[in-house]
């Protein structure tokens, strides 16, 4: 029998091990530090909005009332008119954007070859970079100046469509590219036509990613303010009609309260106290907007999970 020598020293401390450890530690520290720094503004922002906004959300009537007849000297007021306006405008925008964006992405990934596809990609790139206020001015020029329409909620939706389409096209394109070609070939080899392969195999496989893209698109447009200012203005009263008159929205409510900030002095328990009703409502609306996007996000994730790849 031969004796097995102890591997000992050479494996325990090979040359250069010390340096490598130092590098490893340094890199680890840097990565964690970067992570912490990135979290600071996020947590700070959330804390500010939640701590200042939660008061209004817990008051009676915030989700049912409106701002009708309420000035910075008055307490109370609600955001229902604004929630309704935002939901309507975003819903119409989504209903228009999603089909167009999906079809464009399908064209680009599954069919697009040659100059037309390159031009489409180029146009989507340009659209991605358009500032929202420019989109709003364009809609204003076409629908109000040229066709003589009136400022109303659906024009906001149209301006938002221009912002939403590129977001959804981009994410959907990436998701469709991730679907392995083998699945398409497996389907073709079964004698399934191309369009049916796309509808029944490719889209379901990419569905959860596509839904994420749609949610990103919604989050992108739900807080847009420039199109509101230009195309619909703001109404402290409820207006459920997308096609006529000024309509409230959450960003609109925030902006309105911000423009009318002011303090007032009241008597509370025999003492004079300075209160900021408008600021409270502004933060309340900000928190409501964040919650709204979050709820839409969660809802979309539940839908996506149902159709997810197992």
């Amino acid at each position: 029998m031969t004796t097995v020598e102890s591997a000992g020293s050479s494996l325990a401390s090979p040359p250069g091990a010390g340096i490598r450890k130092v590098k490893d530690r340094t890199a680890t520290t840097l990565v964690y530090a970067a992570f912490a720094i990135a979290l600071v503004p996020l947590i700070w922002l959330l804390w500010t909005v939640v701590s200042k906004g939660i008061y209004m959300l817990t008051r009676n009537g915030w989700f049912t009332g409106t701002e009708r007849g309420i000035t910075y000297r008055d307490a109370g007021g609600g955001a229902w008119h604004a929630v309704l306006g935002t939901l309507e405008q975003v819903a119409l925008c989504t209903a228009i954007s999603v089909p167009i964006a999906l079809l464009v992405a399908i064209y680009l990934v599954e069919y697009g070859r040659g100059p037309l596809a390159r031009m489409t990609t180029f146009m989507v790139d340009i659209l991605t970079g358009i500032p929202s206020i420019v989109a709003a001015l364009f809609i204003y020029a076409v629908f109000i100046t040229t066709f003589g329409g009136e400022r109303s909620g659906w024009l906001v939706s149209l301006a938002l469509v221009m912002l939403m389409i590129p977001v959804i096209v981009r994410t959907t394109e990436e998701m469709l590219k991730l679907v392995p070609n083998e699945l398409r070939e497996a389907s073709y080899a079964l004698g399934v036509p191309k369009w049916k392969t796309i509808v029944r195999i490719v889209l379901p496989t990419a569905m959860s990613g596509i839904v994420t893209g749609v949610v990103l698109g919604i989050a992108r447009v739900a807080g847009e303010t420039a199109p509101l200012l230009i195309l619909v203005g703001y109404s402290p009263d409820k207006n459920a009609n997308l096609f006529s008159g000024p309509q409230a929205s959450l960003p609109g409510l925030i902006k309105d309260q911000f423009s009318n900030l002011g303090s007032t002095t009241i008597l509370e328990g025999g003492k004079r106290v300075t209160v900021h009703y408008a600021a409270d409502r502004m933060w309340g609306a900000a928190l409501t907007l964040i919650l709204l996007v979050m709820i839409l996000n969660l809802a979309a994730r539940v839908i996506a999970r149902r159709s997810a790849v197992n």
Binding site: E182, L183, A189, G191, S307, V309, N310
Partner: peptide, 16 residues
Amino acid sequence: RRTIGMVFQRPNPFPT
């Protein structure tokens, strides 16, 4: 392709 079926190198069941 309906008349002539095919099995591929890598198994590719539909994941959904």
